[in-house]
Amino acid sequence: MRKVNTITLLLTCFLGFSSCAENALKEEKKADTNAKESTQKVAGSPWVKQFEDTFDVGSGLSQWTKEQRADYNSWYCDYSSSVPTTQWRDGKQCLEIKTTKLNAYKYQSGFITSNYQYKPENNTEYMLSANIKLIAMDGGTYKSFKDTYGAWPAFWSVQGNGWPTKGEIDIMEGYSFAPNASRFTSNIFYGTSVGANLLGNAAERNYPANFNVDGNNGWHLYESFWRMKDNVVTVTIKVDNITVATYTNGSVSNLNFNNFGTHSIIFNINVGSKDSNFIDPNKINLFTTVMMWVDDVTVYKRPI
């Protein structure tokens, strides 16, 4: 994120109005406080940054692959490579993924996969973090994600080749079931044969009951901590620094984190489902659009 050059601002104010310097310092302090409230990332020593994208407007998303295909889990959603863009939103430079209704039962959306991949070696830990906001629009009016029905945004990591034999870690999966309802979960998928998930949804964990997607102006910090200590793997999912779930091989029958491969990072918004009992296609209502804004995404690594 770009910030105003404080030195230039102070010099200008000093020459023009003596009180401006004090106001500028107050504004800078306020901006820093707001930034900390938004991100609250803990990445001091011994954490070392491995990957970052701040989604500067005009950057072209060169660190990502933009998918062009139908969604695997829904009859109603196609991904277009033209959808993921960088935009100024809420005064931040963001990745924006938005939905568009093409006809009664077809929606266009976006799906991006990082070219960067990671996996902890023994006695190391990785921290994957992203600041995300989910919002809808009805014409020129903003609507809550909770007012929509049938939206399915996600922030996750996966080794796509040979899925699910190299694992999948879902940090955030959101589901909208209006009126005024939504559900957020984490999940893990794994199997020993291509196309066959052995876990079902046994690893799905609901977010805390008091999680409010509209809180903090809609911005939330979503994190995955993936570590291997003496060949024992632990994955911890957090939202706004609150633990959602902690997984080990013993958490779910048939789970084997030690067989997970290197993972890419994914952001997408699916619409609907192939299971009409889960998401009724006749009830889908995304107003004009549902959007995912991602302020930044980072990966840090440390020895443990």
Rank of each mutant, 00 (worst) to 15 (best):
T8K: 08
L10V: 13
F17A: 06
S18I: 03
L25K: 13
T33D: 11
K41I: 12
V48N: 11
Q50M: 13
E52A: 05
T54G: 13
Q68P: 00
A70E: 10
S74W: 12
D78I: 08
S81L: 03
R89I: 06
K92C: 04
Q93Y: 05
Q93K: 14
T100C: 03
K101H: 05
A104F: 13
K106R: 15
Q108G: 04
I112C: 00
S114G: 02
Y118E: 03
T124P: 01
I132H: 10
D138F: 02
G140Q: 11
T141L: 00
S144P: 06
Y149C: 06
G162V: 09
K166M: 08
K166C: 01
I169Q: 11
S176P: 02
G191V: 06
V194R: 12
G200T: 04
E204F: 00
R205N: 08
F211W: 10
E223N: 07
F225W: 00
F225K: 07
R227F: 01
R227W: 02
M228W: 01
I237N: 12
A245H: 02
G250C: 03
G250K: 07
S253K: 11
N254F: 11
L255G: 02
F260Y: 12
F267S: 05
K274L: 02
D275V: 08
S276M: 07
N277C: 11
N277M: 14
F278R: 10
F278N: 11
I284Y: 10
V290Q: 11
M292H: 09
D295F: 04
